[in-house]
Design a protein around this nucleic acid. Sequence first.
DNA 1: ATTACAATAATGCACATACAATATTTTCTG
DNA 2: CAGAAAATATTGTATGTGCATTATTGTAAT
Lengths: 257, 257
Amino acid sequence: MASTRLNLPGNLKMITSRGALAVHLRIIEDFETRILSGLWHTGFRIPTEHEIAAEYNCSRPTVAKALMLLEQKGMIMRRKRAGSFVRRPPAQSVILQALDPATEISARNQKRRYEVLSRVVRRTTSGDRAKLRMRSGRVLSIVTRDWADDVIYCLEERLFNLDTIPDAEHIDFDKTPPSEWLVLRVPWRTGDNSIFAEEASESHAEALQVRPGAALLCIERQVYVSTGYLSYSITRYPASQQRLRAHYDTSAIHPTT
Amino acid sequence: MASTRLNLPGNLKMITSRGALAVHLRIIEDFETRILSGLWHTGFRIPTEHEIAAEYNCSRPTVAKALMLLEQKGMIMRRKRAGSFVRRPPAQSVILQALDPATEISARNQKRRYEVLSRVVRRTTSGDRAKLRMRSGRVLSIVTRDWADDVIYCLEERLFNLDTIPDAEHIDFDKTPPSEWLVLRVPWRTGDNSIFAEEASESHAEALQVRPGAALLCIERQVYVSTGYLSYSITRYPASQQRLRAHYDTSAIHPTT
DNA sequence: ATTACAATAATGCACATACAATATTTTCTG
DNA sequence: CAGAAAATATTGTATGTGCATTATTGTAAT
């Protein structure tokens, strides 16, 4: 039934499809402009779906789609019956990209070389247990050093939890650095990072060939998946070698997601 | 016409609404699990919308919604006629949250105090022009220092481009720190950050009351909107004071957005 | 065999519609 | 007048439908 034909305007869609933007995208763009420009200030209650549908001469589901995507983007907040409101911009936050030496070094058009300084499998120490949130078991501890051309680039100390990622034990990390191996092995993962500065200890200074007390940029990482912590690492860069570049867009990040 | 009633099963929706998750959310969760677990590897072609609809006993638009959101999340890629495919995980990247002293200090349950060390309006120097990407004009240069309880927390040197954000000139930054004023004044914005370590110069050491040569964590920022660069700042933290915490989720960030 | 064209299958967009959930507003009642 | 109950408006979810777009596949013709 409804064998159809209630033939709607019929050319409406033509208009939209004729190279022009899809209606819901037009709505999104328009609203973004208004919000970003401040015309619709934080807390402003935007028109109801019905009103918008009338304004754009489209159906409510189309409007709903646009608003849903804007909410996803973090620009508005929607509450049943209450309406949709312009959100307060999220806390200042930034996205750091490409924290791994391979990408960084090749971005600088330099040749990367890396070497394994030590590689040990052992029972966990109490320090390991804290870093990997584990009770007992064994870990692989591995120290590597990266060079960019003929300059020492960074020093990485890494622990693998052999309970959660046992195959690390038998991998020859002479070819593939531990960080890259992990990315390939567990592509979808999550982690906590900590970035800080410190003064080089005697041993770190020696490995990095800098003066003891020299400033280092350090990144500490814990990688885990739902089944547990996989890896802990701390990477030290001489201050002269590394800058972390970051970018942000207020609209790109929001706490809800 | 289609005056309706072709009354559908009718209790189907009851089932879904009875506390259970919405169908499209269930699909998303299921698919995420399969992708994250590696069951559906990178490049895997996921079932067609029709097949999924059949599997979940729902309509195609519902499936389409789920797939659209998964695409938005960056987990799959969709191509007309070709199908939907599991995406390669994005490059390693992390989200840094809350880089501002106010949040950081109060998160540590400390009392924040801050002071303006200098405030000058002047014509641009060549250094200013590089930092703010401007040709000429005037800038407001302001140096502030933050304390957490009775410890010096950071030192911030900031430039405002008075061409793009002229009202900064007449603001009394004694009450509101420049960074917070800027957030309120221009809530939706974008920026580039650079994070690095350095050894304290004589003057910075004095302002931060550390030994010259001590390790500092530095964050350099440029903030801009579509109309131009608004502000440049560089913030220096004694190594003992600040760690940047970051978190990532492979699924949270992707280059397309 | 290779190219060109037609058929086909998949996603993309939009519509009209229905009902559920819920916060707000209004009305009613004590 | 205050508080409770009912009405109402608004978003949330899902359905079924139709057509547009486009990549792939298959077929036919050169």
